[in-house]
Nucleic acid binder design. Structure first.
Length: 581
RNA sequence: GCGCCUGUAGCUCAGGGGAUAGAGCAUCGGACUUCUAAUCCGAGUGCCGCAGGUUCGAUUCCUGCCAGGCGCGCCA
């Protein structure tokens, strides 16, 4: 008979990192132990002749939705039934026979079609609280990423105007993803790529020059495709104050100055807006620096050596179809100018040369055609296609009074990121952008976001935190000290309200890893909401202060842990955790 | 035509190869001499877009179709 092949379970395949020390990560640690017990049971069942199994199929071991189904459940018997030529429940019985009850396992059950449900002893709940107390604001962090160097590029709006609401969504998602990845032990760089060398920058410079002239000559022609926004005129006025003789300059100098100075002003403006939004970039990368350093030429040179280029109709083409793109791309136009693709290739090459092993670009929905060409370029540069990962966000529709807010650039009806923040505030804006999965279209209800009531999820979560702070303040006033987890008798926490709360606290580490690896920051928003909900329920039904000292102390420990975890969750989302509301 | 995203309760959305499909809002009814009622408790709601396929099992995976949104430049 073939030896059973042990198969680790679930998304954390072979994840021995979890056991990096005692109290590191309780829920995951318990699961690993259970997994080992199951594997051992399979071994013994096979050896004892209770089970005939050539190979162990992949199975799951997870916390069931329904608490009646225990703390963990596995489907091993269902998936192995066919190979074992036995009904699932019989397979389960053969395995359960070899699973020792005792220690942290209180009870093992066979249920439903053949699930094996594990009920853990109360001690493991206490372990969760002890773990939170030990790790404090670091609870939930891991070394899952093992120092892998990741570069996250997001927003990267053109430096020709204010940021819009999709930029705001990208900023929230990118920033939170960066926080999550850091929590998972990745080395993360965040970058905003500034397109300050392309056509749009020229058009912008033209617009700015025209507005300057219009200050003294209202008849001065404004470029047809120019940027009509009021901010360009404001900028022109400021420019004339700084450079009173500007209008006398040769036109070439005016344009060159406006392109540089004007885009610099826009970058500063965008950066300031993002800062109030809680988003700071490690690097603002200038496209013009690539041009100045001759990096685009180096791309051309390298591709030419490799034979990836050809000329047609006066333009220089990159044969990107050799690397899976759906059409070839022009790198140098027939007028001799580089396309944006060339600069983007140079930029991504630069990232790679800086030692990043994973490049993640978060882009708007209008850029999905970009994926194929950049993956082609990455491969042409000698890296694997998977080195680059592109996240495409979907559109944001703003709703006011149930109606979609119409936006038109031409008509000047345009809600900027800053307008949005002025209206709803940073916390609400970030939460609303982070509560949906990134690839979903998002309806942003402006009325709801400003509402300071129970209907607004962000206040709901923050209120839970504020309530805890209030309890702790009053405890302090009463001279009651929150004991350490080892001092309190945690076995007194026996109600469903308390147990549900502790179990939820135990889920954070796994949620962080899932949110990170799946690139789904909205999982944390949901987690925070769930935790707050369970806490509010606990709060209503279980008093803390005023109970007998032993129970009061145990609950103080619990409440303190909830505070830590709520604050951590909010902080990952970039949302404040107020102590009073 | 090709590509991307979406289709789950009246609305906005989670979830997801398995054990009765979830939450908030809206609707209705309860709970403040007690740590903040921005809270809690209770009540109803579903051909999980349609049709095939894979599977012991599909709302989940695959294919096709339908519907909505968006993209397919020598613009960025």
């Amino acid at each position: 008979m073939a030896q059973p092949i042990f198969s680790p379970v679930g998304f954390l395949r072979g994840s021995s990192f979890i056991l990096g020390g005692s109290g590191m990560n309780i829920a995951l640690e318990k699961r690993e132990k259970l997994q080992a017990l199951i594997n051992e049971a399979i071994n013994q069942a096979v050896a004892g002749g209770d089970l005939s199994l050539a190979e162990v199929p992949d199975f799951t071991l997870e916390a069931p939705k329904d608490p009646n189904h225990g703390d963990f459940a596995t489907n091993i018997a269902l998936v192995a039934a066919k190979a074992a030529r036995k009904p699932p429940r019989d397979v389960a019985a053969a395995l359960v026979k070899y699973i020792p009850v005792g220690g942290f396992i209180e009870k093992v059950e066979i249920a439903g079609p053949g699930f094996i449900n594990f009920f853990l002893s109360h001690e493991w709940l206490a372990d969760i609280l002890r773990s939170i107390e030990a790790r404090r604001e670091d609870y939930g962090s891991s070394d899952y990423g093992q120092g892998e160097k990741v570069l996250l590029e997001f927003v990267s709006a053109n430096p020709v105007g204010p940021l819009n609401v999709v930029n705001a969504r990208a900023a929230a998602v990118g920033d939170t993803l960066a926080r999550l990845m850091r929590a998972c032990g990745y080395t993360v760089g965040t970058e905003f790529y500034v397109n300050d060398a392309g056509n749009q920058a020229d058009v912008f410079a033209n617009s700015l020059v025209a507005r300057c002239h219009q200050q003294v000559d209202p008849e001065y022609p404004f470029p047809e495709e120019g940027y009509p926004g009021e901010y360009v005129t404001d900028l022109a006025k400021r420019l004339l104050q700084e450079k009173p003789d500007f209008l006398d300059w040769p036109r070439e100098e005016q344009l060159a100055f406006c392109k540089r100075w004007g885009t610099d002003q826009m970058v500063e403006w965008q950066a300031a807006d993002l800062r109030t939004y809680g988003v700071e970039f490690d690097v603002w990368f200038r496209e013009r620096d690539l041009h100045a350093a001759g990096e685009l030429e180096k791309v051309i040179e390298y591709f030419r050596e490799k034979g990836y280029l050809y000329e047609e109709e006066g333009a220089l083409w990159f044969r990107s179809t050799d690397f899976g793109d759906d059409k070839d791309r022009v790198l140098i136009k027939s007028d001799g100018a580089y396309t944006y693709v060339t600069a983007d290739i140079a930029y991504h090459w630069d990232k790679l040369k800086r030692g990043y092993t994973k490049l993640i670009d978060i882009l708007g929905p209008d850029h999905h055609g970009y994926i194929g060409r950049m993956k082609a370029a990455i491969q042409a540069l000698g890296y694997g296609a998977d080195t680059l990962e592109v996240l495409i966000l979907q559109y944001v529709a703003l709703l006011r009074d149930g109606q979609q807010v119409k936006m038109s650039k031409r008509a000047g009806e345009f809600i900027t990121m800053q307008d949005l923040l002025d209206e709803v505030g940073t916390d609400a804006a970030r939460y609303f952008f982070l509560m949906r999965s990134p690839e979903s279209h998002l309806d942003f209800d402006l009325n709801l976001a400003v509402e300071q009531s129970s209907e607004n999820p962000v206040y709901y979560v923050q209120y839970a935190h504020a309530r805890i702070c209030s309890i702790l303040r009053q405890a302090e006033d009463m001279g009651v000290v929150v004991p350490s987890a080892s001092e309190a008798d945690l076995s007194l926490l026996t109600s469903d309200f308390e147990i549900n709360l502790i179990k939820k606290l135990g889920e954070l580490p796994e949620e962080i890893i899932l949110a990170t690896t799946q690139r789904e920051p909205h999982r944390i928003a949901r987690y925070a909401l769930d935790l707050a909900s369970i806490f509010h329920s606990f709060y209503t039904h279980c008093h803390v202060l005023g109970e007998d000292a032993p129970l009061r102390d145990a609950r103080l420990v619990l409440v303190k842990c909830v505070q830590i975890v709520l604050k951590r969750s909010l902080s990952l989302l970039g949302i404040s955790a107020p102590e009073q509301m």
